[in-house]
């Protein structure tokens, strides 16, 4: 597969970012991980990823960060044509009700993980969201069966007429 699907982790606290990236290690073989410590850096990373002909499949984003906050970053991402299909997950302990409503309404937030997370929970959410992404983008599900939700991908293949040649 030439076009790579990236996972983007946006988190300002370096220890937390490291922990997140470490927990996502098993996905890296299929979905390269990029990280950013601020919304501004994240935007640059997004730009670079797309410029290299790749795409962002999932964004895990903290909310409270210096500069632009996570929800506003996600809203901006949603407004961009190329990137609005990326799955968006808030990983935060501090987004209030209003911010969360904003994120759901204007950034089509896909999931909210409250800190502290567990590895199992994180993996489950990432698996589900990336599976959704693959199916929505109509990518060949076979190459992701091993890492993502294979039952759902099989079901997808069953109903989407992948045929023998």
């Amino acid at each position: 597969m030439d076009r790579q699907i990236y996972i983007l982790v946006v988190e300002d606290e370096l220890e937390v970012m490291e922990a997140l990236v470490n927990d996502l290690e098993q996905f890296e073989e299929f979905f390269p991980i990029e990280s950013a410590n601020s919304s501004e850096e994240a935007k640059q990373v997004v730009k670079d990823v797309y410029a290299a002909g790749n795409e962002i499949g999932l964004v895990l984003c903290d909310h409270v960060m210096p500069g632009q906050n996570g929800v506003d970053f996600l809203i901006e991402l949603q407004a961009n044509n190329a990137q609005h299909e990326a799955k968006k997950v808030l990983v935060t302990g501090q987004a209030g009700l209003e911010d969360t409503i904003q994120a759901i309404n204007n950034a089509k937030l896909d999931y909210y993980i409250a800190k502290p997370w567990t590895k199992e929970q994180l993996e489950e959410v990432v698996t589900t969201q990336l599976t959704n992404y693959i199916m929505e983008r109509k990518y060949n599900p076979m190459q992701y069966m091993m890492i993502l939700d294979s039952v759902r991908l099989s079901e997808y293949m069953r109903t989407h007429k992948i045929t023998d040649h």
């Binding site: 390269p32 410590n37 850096e41 990373v45």
Partner: peptide
């Protein structure tokens, strides 16, 4: 000390040259 993501990205490029036998991105 934890390294910020910009530096990680830069260093990843040099690491790929320095350790060409390491293939896994993680």
């Amino acid at each position: 000390k934890p390294v910020n993501s910009t530096d990680v990205r830069k260093r990843m490029l040099t690491i790929q040259k320095q350790f060409p036998w390491v293939k896994e991105r993680s």
